[in-house]
Write a protein that binds this DNA or RNA. Structure first.
Lengths: 149, 149
DNA sequence: CAAAGTAGTCAACTAGGTTGTCTAACCTTA
DNA sequence: TAAGGTTAGACAACCTAGTTGACTACTTTG
């Protein structure tokens, strides 16, 4: 049996590849994973560019490039931070929210198919197990999302 | 609960970060993940540069660069292919096998710690579940190992 | 209120891939 | 057995997505 690390890498790749293929099929602009993960963060909480970099696991400069792209393409805008004049909140536009909704549907389709393929109970155990592992390793300040290759 | 994709990405990163840290602690040259994954492949079977590229999920040119590095650093050598004069088998040197042995120990330490943290049964379910999922998605020709970011 | 720290921007650079092209060898198949 | 298509590997040019470092404006802390 493969070591768990390999299985994690291959599974992440496998599900990501499917996501990417289906995005193309339905004719949606194929943003990169990082872009989508930014959307998910912005849906969950208000965040600045620095916050985004931390969440992704890249430098703030790299995060700034991503945010610039999303801004140019009309998915996000920047708003002044209410108390800190240096900072700006990055927020989703309508276009951004639309994209996120479609992408979320796609993710949940894929997750449902996974549940069907390996059994809902098994999927549940996987999710709970990995969640527990992350909690065990990093406590409450989680590592970046970006896989280090 | 986070979507399973996020959990896969974060878990892969978390375990990989730990591996990297410990490699440094014990003073081993911190090769990149790709290098280690090449070692593992070469241990399992004879492989050419093209095979390696396929296994990693990168082009043969990218694989050739990695093999060149490993060769310069003394971890692998090339041997003529017995029947195909174009091709060369890439094989581990003693130094390569030594490195692999240490790295494998480290991986199994980490996997044991994971088992301890979340329970051996849970880990087992995770591994079997992911294996089944990969089989379901890709059948016998597995996707590349490299996470697409 | 001075010193240290932080958000964001700009610029230069690098790592690690990509595509495209070529040669020599291999594999049909007619 | 010769012809046409395919494949392994090498070389080169290029590109993408990150990095480090430096700087300004603002904020927090002792």
């Amino acid at each position: 049996m493969e070591p768990v690390t390999m299985l994690l890498a291959m599974s992440y790749r496998a599900i990501g590849d499917q996501f990417h293929d289906r995005l193309e099929q339905i004719g949606l602009e194929p943003l990169r994973p990082a872009h989508g993960y930014v959307f998910r963060l912005l849906k969950a909480k208000r965040a600045t560019t620095v916050d985004i970099g931390q969440h992704l696991g890249v430098t703030k400069q790299a995060a700034a490039k991503i945010v610039n792209e999303l801004d140019e393409w009309g998915y996000v805008t920047r708003e002044p931070h209410p108390t800190d004049k240096r900072a700006q909140y990055v927020t989703l536009t309508g276009k951004g929210r639309d994209y996120l909704r479609l992408a979320d549907n796609l993710w949940s389709d894929l997750e449902n198919e996974m549940a069907e393929a390996i059994g809902p109970g098994t999927l549940d155990t996987i999710k709970q197990g990995l969640t527990a592992y992350l909690q065990h390793v990093h406590g409450d300040d989680q590592p970046g999302l970006r896989p280090v290759w």
